[in-house]
Write a protein that binds this DNA or RNA. Structure first.
Lengths: 137, 137
DNA sequence: CATAAATACTACACAAAAGTAGTATTTTTA
DNA sequence: TAAAAATACTACTTTTGTGTAGTATTTATG
């Protein structure tokens, strides 16, 4: 597994919200559109609000909307905000002190892949993803 | 997390065995050298034997040795044999039917990197890893 | 033949991620 | 002002990966 379910959900939610013109998104609406378990979803969205990515409005006419500008939110930031572990920045064989100087057997194979992927995640903002056509969330 | 612990262990064991000239490897010996929990390790090695990667010899002078030629065992095969899930070859957002024709938002961000990585894993055999110096297992 | 030491098997324990349930709080609206 | 509908919070349950324990089976060796 590359990302945890929680991270998958968080990324999907934010990309979905970035694509749809809408003042406020309730968790129920996002749940219905993305089929993410409702209660679990509310926790994730509340969490994203606490982390400063979303703004939450309470009460009957409440919901969520972006707090930051879309071009300020990179994919890597989202992942880091939600992912429990360090994600990618570990040795792929789980060894301590794995580095270029003291590499494990798979170090260089993985390092190249990891760097390239993380560069992509760092350079891609939600604003970038809005401009491309997406059919599935 | 990229690989499960189980897969990490399996890969480490096989790479270790490939590097050391030795007729037979007992689980106890591998445990002492690699510090992988003994009981867990025996399960993994027994499993690798069932999958045809290792041959197991029972009884007092028993142990494990390779069943196939080292240049026939690619890293991708090992991972696929042990990893519960499909490993890398899934949609990074967990969506069904994600493909070049019907891509998710992150499909092309991840796909190119993934393909390259999987190509490396497919082209690298245990025999290849024997020829490089490895200090840690 | 009995013991030792290895693999093989089964069941259970633990921890973390994922998901569910219920309640509290806030705010709109009839 | 009371009900409705939203977020916020807390606790529990389920699932899965990881790890532990004990026993059965096999085989070499004294």
């Amino acid at each position: 597994m590359i990302l945890t379910k929680t991270t998958e959900y968080a990324v999907r939610v934010l990309i979905f919200m970035a694509h749809e013109e809408r003042g406020l998104f309730t968790a129920r609406y996002v749940h219905e559109r993305l089929r993410i378990p409702y209660k679990y979803l509310t926790r994730i969205m509340t969490d994203l609000a606490k982390q400063g990515y979303l703004e939450s409005i309470r009460g009957r006419a409440g919901g969520f909307r972006f707090q930051k500008n879309l071009n300020k939110i990179t994919l890597i930031k989202i992942i880091e905000a939600v992912e429990a572990t360090d994600g990618f920045d570990k040795c792929i064989l789980g060894l301590e002190d794995c580095s270029d100087e003291n590499p494990c057997a798979l170090h260089f194979v993985w390092e190249k892949t990891k760097k390239e992927f993380m560069k992509n995640l760092s350079n891609t903002t939600l604003a970038d993803l809005v401009s491309i056509e997406i059919k599935k969330f």
